[in-house]
Design a protein around this nucleic acid. Structure first.
Lengths: 185, 185
DNA sequence: TGCCAAACGGAGAGTGTCTCCGTATAGTTC
DNA sequence: GAACTATACGGAGACACTCTCCGTTTGGCA
């Protein structure tokens, strides 16, 4: 890649990350990103053929964080409930870090054609590792996809309504206890 | 209201309901609704100043269904878990009846300025009635808003990903068991 | 220095929500 | 039934957005 192209790409990602974080995916227009980065719309679309692909580039680094969070949760010397809740909280926090991300990523969980497909695989894999690491303390039937969707739902609602952290924690606690419940009916 | 205006309004609502149900809120344009109802865009906007207000008119009748569902759940001669799950399932089913509704309504839960504010009050009231009718079988801290959001989150994910009914039921079961869990940590 | 593949950027196509305003008509009054 | 007026109609178009095309510019190399 030519030096000027690399420079422009970097500036676009930087500007877009800040704009998306502050105001959310939908509320920021591509023209705005282009103007903020000092390039024309054509240049922006040369680097990122769709708005979603730009978004994907922005959350690139997340995947790495995910596995770290699972490792931390599994390494805790604590009851299953605490370890589970630690992971769910980290997971939800990562999903709500960027406005609009939770709904978008959770919606892409079952769609191999999505631009986020690779990230979804990382997430699902992380949940799978957690399940295996917890040695069937979870209810029968609990699986990575289900957990991802449950937490994704909570995160999407939290993001959408800008809920305070303790509301989110309380909802995640309900889910954690539900996942740990021995089904009795 | 003049007779022709009433006729047009009725036709618009009828056409829009069918279009929204089939293809979802975002995928249907107002021009399309206008054309389908045989009126001009100006007429459509005369009756419904925003797209959301049209949506609100369409889901008008829902509120009545909600209280019926609570009554049915409370009247069941069955363990708390069964009654709770019955209500959560009904609630989620109503939210996913129209594509896009779950996220929209759940997002409006805490926003008094939303066009859906009245409907949200109905939903919250229904959940409150359920809580009171279940005589504190629920975990401490569970409240109408929290339950609405939890179920809304599941419904939004289900709607977004077009999940089969049994997946939704499984997720609601997790939430129901979580809500019934005696918090032990 | 000259070349050219690569990158740039802006005009504009296509689509969406919503508005303005001249025209048509329902309902009332004589 | 005719005239009148408030009400409703409908389409052109303003404005915003995503994304494309293509003539122009420029970085990197021989």
């Amino acid at each position: 890649m030519r030096a000027d192209a690399q420079r422009n790409r970097d500036r676009i990602v930087e500007v877009a990350r800040e704009l998306f974080r502050a105001r959310g995916f939908d509320a920021v227009s591509m023209d705005e990103v282009a103007k903020g980065a000092g390039v024309g719309p054509g240049t922006l679309y040369r680097h990122f053929p769709t708005k979603e692909s730009l978004y994907d580039a922005i959350i690139e680094a997340w995947s790495e964080k995910v596995n770290g969070a699972v490792d931390r949760a599994l390494a805790l010397e604590a009851p299953a409930r605490v370890r589970l809740l630690a992971w769910l909280s980290d997971y939800a926090a990562m999903l709500t870090e960027h406005k609009g991300a939770a709904a978008r990523i959770t919606g892409a969980l079952g769609d191999p054609g999505s631009p986020f497909a690779a990230k979804c695989q990382t997430y699902l894999g992380a949940n799978q590792r957690l399940i295996e690491g917890m040695d069937s303390a979870l209810r029968p039937g609990a699986n990575a996809m289900q957990i991802s969707r449950l937490v994704g739902g909570v995160a999407a609602v939290a993001d959408n309504s800008e809920l305070p952290a303790d509301s989110v924690t309380a909802m995640l606690a309900v889910i954690a206890d539900g996942l740990l419940a021995s089904v009795n009916a």
